[in-house]
Simulated assay, not measured.
Amino acid sequence: MTHPSPAPAQTPDSPTLYEVREGVAVLTLNRPHRRNAFTRAMLAGWAEGIARAAADPEVRALLVTGAGKGFCAGVDLDEFSQVTSSLDRRAYLADDVHAVARALEGFEKPYIAAINGDAIGAGMDMALMADIRLIGETARLSQGYVRVGLVPGDGGAHMLPRIVGEQRALELMWTGRMVPGPEAVELGIALEAHPTEELFEAAFALAARLAAGPPAAIRTIKRLTRLARSQSLTEHLVHAAAEQAVIQTTEDSAEAQAAFREKRTPVYRGR
């Protein structure tokens, strides 16, 4: 069994905060004075938190949110302005910013974003990486790169068309306009909008519900869904049949069927 590495030192001023309860790891972006604009230290903590959640068998879902009034304002321009050469800027993106995307590429547990405030530029891209997004009614999203003469640098041009379609994605990327929470739900970017003061509890309830499900089946559903992006239906069905054959042999599958027959709540052990 894989066990997580020892937790790094964490203080109230740490750029990311990490805690686990009810099978849910909560990762909080913790630079509220900068609307959670990310620095190298925050990015390292973000990627490390994802790795910890992946390795910890007690964690069955990961929830990310922001401290204060913002979710993530993208890159901290004070830090980024000190990176001047083209090679160093490329390395900043590839080695630091993209570390979060790479960590999530292999993350098979549910990853939920509670977008409590504005998510701008790369901050919106980071939000798009979640499997499910819930948003505050007063929060706003923006592919704001174009407003400062830049292009999406953190996967926005890859993810957004898959969520809203190419036409709408281009409109959002070309204009950089602000999308309020309710419209984000209408466009399919977010699943639900909630009053800001109720958002975290709604997102945590969803994450806890998923954490209470059969872990192997939950992870396999996510894996099948991701693989289907590049598979033909025939390829997908072959893969799904193989995965189903394995899942049917697990203790959790037997427990689910027994609980259904006995009209009780199943207790899953991840075996």
Score class of each variant (00 low, 15 high):
residue 245 A to G: 13
residue 135 I to M: 12
residue 58 E to Y: 04
residue 241 A to V: 13
residue 56 D to Q: 03
residue 131 D to K: 09
residue 128 L to A: 10
residue 206 L to R: 08
residue 198 E to W: 02
residue 231 Q to R: 10
residue 98 H to W: 13
residue 33 H to C: 01
residue 128 L to G: 13
residue 271 R to K: 10
residue 76 D to V: 03
residue 240 A to Y: 06
residue 47 A to N: 06
residue 92 Y to F: 15
residue 182 P to Q: 08
residue 240 A to K: 03
residue 243 E to F: 03
residue 88 D to M: 02
residue 113 A to W: 00
residue 19 E to H: 06
residue 38 F to Q: 02
residue 248 Q to D: 04
residue 21 R to L: 00
residue 97 V to M: 07
residue 95 D to H: 07
residue 166 E to Q: 14
residue 157 A to V: 08
residue 126 M to W: 09
residue 269 R to S: 09
residue 71 F to H: 05
residue 64 V to E: 07
residue 179 V to S: 12
residue 177 R to T: 11
residue 197 E to I: 01
residue 226 R to G: 11
residue 151 V to P: 04
residue 195 P to N: 05
residue 193 A to L: 06
residue 47 A to T: 08
residue 188 G to C: 02
residue 187 L to G: 15
residue 69 K to T: 12
residue 87 L to P: 02
residue 200 F to R: 13
residue 271 R to F: 07
residue 22 E to H: 11
residue 137 E to R: 12
residue 233 L to T: 08
residue 33 H to V: 03
residue 201 E to M: 01
residue 186 E to L: 09
residue 254 A to C: 05
residue 96 D to W: 13
residue 14 S to A: 09
residue 134 L to N: 10
residue 223 R to M: 02
residue 194 H to G: 03
residue 21 R to G: 01
residue 265 T to I: 14
residue 2 T to D: 07
residue 163 I to F: 07
